[in-house]
């Protein structure tokens, strides 16, 4: 599903260059659940952003579903992303002006789904995630765990083949964190490919592969033997 070869990303500051990623080669198969770990500033989020096509690498190749991403226009990338990739963020990034229901509906709006179809899909998903009773609330009226459940629902509403999660439990207490991880685990079991960035060893145990990044390079890769 994903193949990267020699991905490199450099940030230019006024007087110094920071190498965020250096020669990253990564292969993600359909149905994988991969965790990327490493200390702060090692390039985890940068890698995730490039995989999600909201940032570009400076050099190297990135092929997503057989298409070379660097050759796509901004518009094509947006199209590819909204059809195939869902995002979950550490700080949830729900839109405060929209209700829970409308937040979840949003990706379908951008995909151009018909209203009736959107309604059916969102309601079905909310039932499935047991958040239907909160559909008319606004994000500020929810706890962190509840917000992240909504964020996950929004990420998967359009049935993406890939889910990118950036520290999905980072802002949650352990109980709510576990709930979210169980949810991701279930999704993976049902066939969604997941790439997750985390600091948490516990969260990592849910994944099949763990990749360690250090100073922008992959230093080792483990298969999760617990699974």
């Amino acid at each position: 599903m994903i193949i990267t070869e020699g991905l490199t990303k450099v940030f230019d500051a006024e007087d110094a260059e920071t190498v965020a990623l250096k020669n990253v080669n990564l292969k993600v198969e359909k149905g994988d659940f991969i965790t990327i770990m490493g200390p702060s500033g090692c390039g985890k989020t940068t890698l995730l952003n490039i995989l999600g096509m909201i940032d570009d690498a400076d050099s190297g190749n990135y092929s997503f579903l057989g298409q070379e991403v660097s050759r796509l226009s901004e518009r094509e990338k947006t199209g590819l992303r909204k059809r195939n990739i869902g995002f979950v963020f550490q700080n949830f990034n729900l839109i405060d002006e929209l209700t829970v229901w409308e937040n979840i509906e949003l990706p379908l709006v951008y995909l151009g789904w018909k209203k009736q179809a959107r309604k059916q899909r969102v309601n079905e998903l909310m039932d499935q995630l047991q958040i239907s009773h909160r559909k008319n609330l606004f994000p500020v009226q929810l706890s962190g765990g509840q917000q992240q459940r909504v964020a996950v629902a929004r990420a998967i509403v359009a049935n993406p083949s890939l889910l990118l999660a950036d520290e999905p439990t980072g802002n949650l207490d352990s109980m709510h964190g576990e709930e979210v991880m169980n949810l991701l685990n279930d999704l993976n079991k049902n066939g969604t490919t997941i790439v997750m960035v985390t600091h948490s060893q516990r969260d990592a145990t849910f994944s099949r592969r763990i990749i360690h990044l250090f100073d922008g390079q992959i230093i080792n890769e483990n298969i999760n033997k617990l699974l």
């Binding site: 059809r83 729900l94 405060d96 002006e97 949003l106 951008y110 929004r154």
Partner: peptide, 16 residues
């Protein structure tokens, strides 16, 4: 800005 970012990630085109 954050709202814009989210909308973009979720697939909004610039025109939209």
């Amino acid at each position: 800005a954050r709202e814009i970012g989210v909308r973009k990630v979720l697939g909004a085109f610039k025109k939209q």
